[in-house]
Design a protein around this nucleic acid. Structure first.
Lengths: 214, 214
DNA sequence: TTTAAACCGTACCGTACGTTACGGTTCGGC
DNA sequence: GCCGAACCGTAACGTACGGTACGGTTTAAA
């Protein structure tokens, strides 16, 4: 399940991976080894030496992007209602920003295509660094909120999945399918607040806040 | 935006499209014209005559599947709370069943891949017959619920998108990325009820029901 | 200065597949 | 029974691209 044996690339390799990433965003799966070599000013022979084959290059590229995104966990000291709300909004803003970025869209598309023929594990890599990574980072916060008497739920995983749904809604599938949905940072902030409000309405403990009106 | 000029296929063409559909589910985008011809016992020449090129065949196949799925709209007479809840649960069950079906997964994957290179409009077709079709069918029900004093919201579209998020959560993206998520009909029923409960908690009018506990 | 490894650029090979061409067969209309 | 349209099966063409080979160049250690 973990993203195993991803050895950190050298500086030159990182350059190549950045080129591959850019090309992946521009051309999607139509990316060719020749194009990467040309743009990165390296030989195809080197590409094959470093990454084995095309799948290896794609895998390394996806992992390279993932390694750039890992955000630090929120530490939870002095967790009051305001802090919890703020942290949740932070997660929501971050997630919406990620899934609406051209990079995420391109990578998810590649991973989805490859998940079809099971010929590589790009799907699990993206899943592990996206949906599941954010889950593992968010769940401690939810449980802290529960311990602090701010939230109420039985199953942390279920609570998280609902949060996930309230935040993402139809955004990711629409973007993946090519809908020209535009998310300004203002819209993202608004959506994040709305999602957190709704989450508190559903899972806020005892004295239900209802601060903002819908 | 509409799925234009989809002329209904002849019986023989429908056979071929069914073969293509089956092949698409089995092999994803690795489907070849030769494979379709072989399996459908028709000549490649005929395929090209009927569908123009590979993209034409894929497009026709996606539209063919879409034409099979169109469900009738729910008519809303005597709309009380129980009926509304039941209708919403019906929508949720239906939607979860669709997105977790192998056919939907395969078609969405194809559409996502093709949306990358913008070389066809499979993405918009799938979107129009999935996310947007269900939206157009559900929104009248939501508005009827509002008129009947059972629901309370300002923006129907926003209310629908929240419903969409509560129902689908992380299911579709996980399945598209190859996660081995299994949804039994029992689990679908449970999820549908949970989503509708949550929806009523968020948008139920005035005297908030809270029938089921979470 | 020599030398070997790493690497660049380019040419080359093999193959898969979209697309076209064509001979043979079926079938409905006359 | 004759004809042409539609269609089947197969063969052939062209090309794009993954993968390999190789000569020339840089780099750095000995």
């Amino acid at each position: 399940m973990a993203t195993s044996d991803e050895t950190t690339p050298t500086e030159r390799q990182a350059e190549v991976l950045d080129v591959a990433l850019r090309l992946l965003v521009e051309e999607g799966d139509a990316l060719t080894m020749a194009a990467v070599a040309r743009r990165a000013s390296c030989s195809k022979e080197t590409l094959y030496k470093w990454f084995g084959d095309r799948d290896g290059l794609l895998t390394a590229t996806v992992q390279w992007q993932a390694s750039k995104v890992r955000a630090g966990n929120y530490d939870r000291q002095r967790l009051d209602a305001a802090t919890l709300r703020q942290s949740l909004e932070g997660f929501a803003v971050n997630w919406l920003s990620v899934i609406s970025s051209t990079t995420s869209i391109a990578l998810n598309r590649i991973a989805v295509s490859h998940a079809a023929s099971g010929k590589s594990n790009l799907g699990s890599i993206v899943l592990a660094n996206g949906r599941f990574a954010i889950g593992e980072r968010l769940k401690p916060l939810l449980e802290a909120g529960k311990s602090a008497g701010l939230l109420s739920f039985d199953d942390t995983e279920e609570a998280f999945r609902t949060f996930f749904g309230l935040v993402g809604r139809d955004v990711q599938i629409r973007l993946l399918l090519g809908d020209a949905l535009k998310l300004s940072t203002a819209a993202i902030d608004r959506d994040a607040k709305r999602a957190v409000d709704q989450f508190f309405t559903l899972f806020g403990a005892a004295n239900r806040p209802r601060i903002r009106s819908l």
